[in-house]
Amino acid sequence: MHLEWALSAFARLRLFRPILAGATLRDRALACFGALMGIGLSAVIGGLAATDMNHLVWIVPPMGASAVLLFAVPASPMAQPWPAIGGNVISAAIGVAIGHLMPLTALSAGLAVACAIGAMSLLRCLHPPGGAAALVGLFIGGSSSLLFPFVPVGLNAVVLVASAWLYHRMSGHSYPHVAPSPQPARASDRPWTVSKADIAATLKEAGESFDIGADDLESLVRHMERRAIARSYRELTCADLMVTGVIGVKDDASPEQARGLLVKRDIRRLAVVDGAGLLVGAVGLRELLRPARHVGEVMTPAATATPATPAIDLLERYAQGRVHSVFVVDGNRRPVGVVTEADWLHVLTRSLA
C-alpha cells in the first residue's frame, strides 16, 4: 500500500510526467523490453565477430542511445533505419579520419562532432548517437581503427535495426514508420482548413526543429480537424438546424388538399395538427394513396424532437427508422420547426467535403 501511494504521489509531480506526446506507461515498459532484446542480440553477434577482444570492441556505447530512439520513439524521423545505420557509420568514419589527421585535442573532438552533424544533415541521416560515434572513432586511433566504422559500429547498427524491425512487428507498431495518408481537404469548401503549405509556413516561422515528420504532423492535424467537427456536431442542437415555418395541414382536411400542398411545396411530409394547432401526426404521398375522407384517417405518428435535442441524435433515426423528417415541437407539442434528411446532408457536405 505504501509503495502504491508513493508511486501515485510521484505520478502527480510534473517532474515525472511523460515528456513525449502520446507516451504511455505500457509503451515505455515495452521499450525497455525491446532495448533489452536489441542490445543483447547486438552484443552477442558483435562478440562473435570480434576475434581479438583486445583490439576490437564487441559493442559501442552509441548503440545504447540508438536503442532509446528505435524502441522508445520508433516514429521519430531520427529513429528510422537509414539514420540509425548511416548516421552511426558515417559519423564513426569521420571520427576515425580526423583521428588519423590530427592529434587528440579539444579542437579535434569538436571538429569530429561538427563534421558528423554536417555530413548527417546533408545525407538525410541525422541521428543523435552519431555524435557519440564520431567521438568514439576519434578515440580509437591506430591502424586497426580503419575497420571501426563497419565492425563493430555498422554491424551493431544493422543488428539493432533488424531487432527493432522484428520487435515492432510483434508488438503492433509500424517500423520503419510510415505516416498514415491524411485525407485530402478542399480549402475552397472549408476556408479554415489547415493546408500542407500552412504547416510548412508555420514551421518556418517557428524557427525550431521538432522531432516529428511533416507527414505525421499533417496527419495529426487532419485527425484533430475531424474530432473538432464531430465535437461541433454534438454541440449542434435541433434549434440550430431546423427550418421554421412548418408546413402543416389540419387533421380534418381532405386528402386532395394535403396532396396538392405536398406537390406545390415539393416536400415529402406534412405536419398534421388538430384544431388547437398541436401536432398529432404526419402524412406523405404514400399514405394519401389509401382511400379516406380526411387526413386524420391515414396519417402516421410523427417523428418529433425538442429544440434542445442534439442534432446528431437524429442520424440514427434517419438511418434505422426510415424517417425523412423530424418535427421540432415546443413544450405544448406545437410544431416550431422541422429537420429533414436534406438539411443534415447539406451540413455534412459543407463540413466534410
Rank of each mutant, 00 (worst) to 15 (best):
N54F: 05
G110H: 07
N54Y: 05
G154I: 01
A92N: 12
G130Y: 10
G137Q: 09
V57E: 07
C115G: 15
M78H: 14
G46I: 01
A132Y: 04
L123W: 07
L155F: 01
A79K: 12
A93I: 03
G142H: 09
P149F: 00
V113A: 14
G87V: 07
N54I: 03
V68H: 05
L70A: 15
L69Y: 09
H127A: 00
G130H: 10
G46V: 00
G46E: 05
H55Q: 14
A84I: 12
A157M: 07
G118C: 13
G87Y: 12
A112V: 07
C115T: 13
S42F: 00
L48D: 00
S121L: 12
V60H: 06
R124Q: 06
N54C: 01
V89K: 03
V60M: 06
P61L: 09
F139W: 13
I45G: 00
G38K: 02
P77L: 04
M53N: 01
A116M: 06
A84Q: 11
A106Q: 12
P77S: 02
V44P: 07
I98K: 14
G154D: 05
L104H: 14
G87F: 11
R124C: 05
A114K: 08
W58P: 01
S145L: 13
A72H: 15
M37G: 07
S42D: 04
G142T: 12
L111S: 13
G142A: 13
A79S: 15
V158E: 02
C115I: 09
L41V: 15
V136H: 10
V89P: 05
A106C: 09
F150E: 06
L69Q: 10
L101K: 11
L36S: 08
A67N: 11
L138G: 14
